[in-house]
Amino acid sequence: MDIEAWVWWLIGAAALGIPLVLTAMPEFGMMAVGAVAAAIGAGFGLGPVAQVLVFVVVSVALVSVVRPIAARHRAQRPQLATGTEALKGRQAVVLERVDAEGGRIKLAGEVWSARALDTERVYEPGHQVDVVEIDGATAIVM
């Protein structure tokens, strides 16, 4: 029983899909696409050397183009801040005197415990303060 070259390339593509699923390494997926391209080339009658060249060129091209794009996307911060990250940089109103020991502010419609970033500063009720950071359930303000 003689199996044609394009079938072997498709078997190779499926075999490359297994480590892609097991390891979540996208490089295996790009090589699987290269194997599919080689199978298409074999189906059009390309010789063995040309098939291997198609596989290598497509695989290398995908890895060299897709990996930098994926790395750039992975390094980007999310555009929509949620949770305590969304509160950083917002303004709040002092409800009870805020100093290095603590106090209370109204932040995003809720009452929060707060602490002054600068240990020498004191903020009296009615003052507008900026939230610099959230430490647990305490807003650090300045």
Rank of each mutant, 00 (worst) to 15 (best):
residue 115 R to C: 01
residue 34 G to P: 09
residue 17 G to A: 02
residue 133 E to K: 04
residue 72 R to D: 15
residue 124 E to N: 04
residue 70 A to Y: 04
residue 133 E to M: 10
residue 113 S to R: 15
residue 86 A to F: 04
residue 117 L to E: 14
residue 78 P to V: 15
residue 118 D to L: 13
residue 132 V to C: 03
residue 130 D to T: 14
residue 122 V to N: 02
residue 61 A to R: 00
residue 18 I to N: 05
residue 91 Q to K: 14
residue 15 A to Y: 11
residue 111 V to E: 15
residue 65 V to Q: 03
residue 139 A to E: 07
residue 37 A to V: 04
residue 133 E to H: 14
residue 101 E to N: 12
residue 14 A to P: 01
residue 129 V to S: 07
residue 80 L to C: 12
residue 11 I to Y: 05
residue 27 E to F: 12
residue 44 F to H: 01
residue 45 G to C: 09
residue 27 E to T: 14
residue 112 W to K: 05
residue 16 L to E: 03
residue 90 R to N: 05
residue 24 A to S: 08
residue 90 R to A: 09
residue 24 A to R: 06
residue 78 P to T: 13
residue 69 I to C: 13
residue 8 W to A: 07
residue 41 G to M: 11
residue 31 M to P: 01
residue 51 Q to V: 02
residue 137 A to T: 15
residue 67 R to V: 09
residue 90 R to W: 00
residue 98 V to K: 02
residue 20 L to N: 11
residue 8 W to P: 07
residue 91 Q to R: 13
residue 115 R to P: 04
residue 130 D to C: 00
residue 116 A to H: 07
residue 117 L to T: 02
residue 69 I to L: 15
residue 110 E to A: 14
residue 128 Q to T: 15
residue 81 A to C: 04
residue 140 I to E: 01
residue 37 A to C: 11
residue 47 G to E: 01
residue 122 V to D: 10
residue 117 L to M: 13
residue 112 W to H: 06
residue 140 I to Q: 03
residue 130 D to N: 14
residue 135 D to Q: 13
residue 48 P to I: 12
residue 32 A to T: 04
residue 15 A to L: 14
residue 123 Y to D: 11
residue 59 S to R: 10
residue 50 A to T: 10
residue 46 L to D: 02
residue 18 I to G: 00
residue 74 R to M: 08
residue 136 G to Y: 02
residue 25 M to C: 07
residue 94 V to P: 00
residue 130 D to R: 15
residue 98 V to S: 09
residue 58 V to F: 02
residue 51 Q to K: 07
residue 129 V to A: 12
residue 74 R to W: 11
residue 95 L to P: 03
residue 131 V to N: 09
residue 112 W to T: 02
residue 60 V to D: 02
residue 141 V to Q: 04
residue 90 R to D: 01
residue 133 E to I: 00
residue 102 G to F: 00
residue 105 I to H: 00
residue 24 A to N: 13
residue 87 L to E: 03
residue 108 A to R: 11
residue 108 A to S: 15
residue 11 I to M: 06
residue 77 R to I: 04
residue 118 D to Y: 05
residue 51 Q to G: 06
residue 60 V to P: 08
residue 37 A to D: 10
residue 102 G to D: 04
residue 56 V to T: 05
residue 32 A to M: 08
residue 46 L to V: 06
residue 38 A to H: 06
residue 82 T to A: 14
residue 69 I to M: 06
residue 122 V to H: 08
residue 46 L to F: 10
residue 66 V to R: 03
residue 3 I to R: 06
residue 57 V to N: 09
residue 119 T to Y: 11
residue 104 R to W: 12
residue 36 V to D: 08
residue 70 A to M: 15
residue 18 I to S: 07
residue 130 D to H: 10
residue 66 V to D: 08
